[in-house]
Simulated assay, not measured.
Amino acid sequence: MGVLNSRNGKLVLQFRYKGIRCREQTQLLDNKPNRNRLERLLKNIEAEILLDSFDYSKYFPNSRSIKRFVEISQRELASKQYFDSPNSPKFEEFAKTWLLEKQIEWSKGHLMVVEGTIDKYLNPVFGSKKISAINKAQILQFRTILAKVPGRNGGFLSPSRINHIMTPLRMILNEAADRYDFTSPWKNIKALRIPRTDVDPFSVQEVEKVIACAPEEFHCYLTTRFFTGMRTGEVNGLMWKDVDFTKKTINVTQSLNRGEVSTLKTPGSYRTITLIDRVVDVLREHKLKGNSNSDFVFTNSNGLPLNYKVVARTMWYPTLVKAGLKKRNPYQTRHTYATLLLASGESPEWIANQLGHTTTTMLFRVYSRFIPNLTREDGSAFEAFLQNGAQQ
């Protein structure tokens, strides 16, 4: 029960709220009218506490205790949400169900990647927890721990890798919250900022050196990669039915990932690439020499589709060493094709189509410094334009 006390001639209210003793100093003088007034106020406070409708800030808007009780209320809400979802399973159990449901949506390769992420990173931390009890603080703490995990090249996990680990966690928590009627803890958690794409293309001279130093059986493979800009999965999954020697084109319709043929990354990735004569010639020669029993253009010695990890380890990086060039990942062949096209003055719209981009936005964002008219900062392009009578 609340009581009134006096301090320095002014009244002080004392009462208990959420098991905590509260003292609020007033500016009212200690006299009978003021005591009667505050006794009525105390009765209202106690009644509202009993009915669980008491709002501390309503009665004492300037009190230092407000913050404390807000934090208590938030913890109580989280606890209430936990117990309001009595049927919610543990994280590991729900993750298995979620993965089974995703089988119809995802390729086998992507499913394996996500499953590996859950097994390696998520289950050891969240697996035994009730999924409705996982909170924002735990999520952020987990992300902080990831930033200290050693990476492949002696450093730590990159922001991009951390985001890829956090993505299935976000999807699982949001889906579980929807099914078991609790509030998802994933609120205002933004993805880590990813540094600008590492574009480190080869020069024309370096391209020739790489092809010359590679094993002969990979000359066609590398020529195709460097002069079509196809992604690793696209070139490894290329089939002869998609090569048109008459029209000098390649139809990019599928990708090979982890030994499985799958759909492409985006709708815009489905495209027709116009080939230069050099690529047409090496593909014709390759077909005459190659394994005629395989539908795939590029195969290993056993006639099976290429494994990108094996190719990178046994051919790509050893070839760079032999050529005396710095280490760069195979994806730089795609960047090389894009920058060579830009340097030659080809239309950005046509280049975007060749690469499988629906617009030129990414082209300008990623390769802006390789576009001559964008990297020239001395005004010479504008001057030449005016001297030419403003004629294109």
Rank of each mutant, 00 (worst) to 15 (best):
A312N: 09
L306Y: 00
E349F: 07
L340T: 11
G303V: 03
R328C: 09
L304H: 07
T359S: 12
F364Y: 15
V366R: 03
T375Y: 02
G303Q: 04
G303T: 05
T359R: 00
L374C: 08
P305A: 01
A338H: 09
T361K: 07
F364L: 13
W350G: 00
Y337A: 04
G303E: 04
P348W: 03
L355H: 07
Y331A: 05
E346V: 09
L340E: 14
T361P: 00
V311E: 12
K327W: 12
T360S: 12
F364W: 13
L341N: 02
L320P: 01
W316A: 06
N307I: 04
G356F: 04
G356E: 08
A323T: 11
E349I: 10
L341G: 00
S301H: 07
I371C: 06
G356T: 08
N302H: 06
T336I: 14
I351D: 00
S301M: 04
V321W: 01
Q332M: 08
Q354S: 05
K326N: 14
T375Q: 05
S368D: 14
W350F: 12
N373G: 02
K326M: 14
T339N: 04
V366D: 14
L320T: 03
L340D: 09
R365Y: 11
N302F: 08
L363W: 08
K309H: 12
L374Q: 15
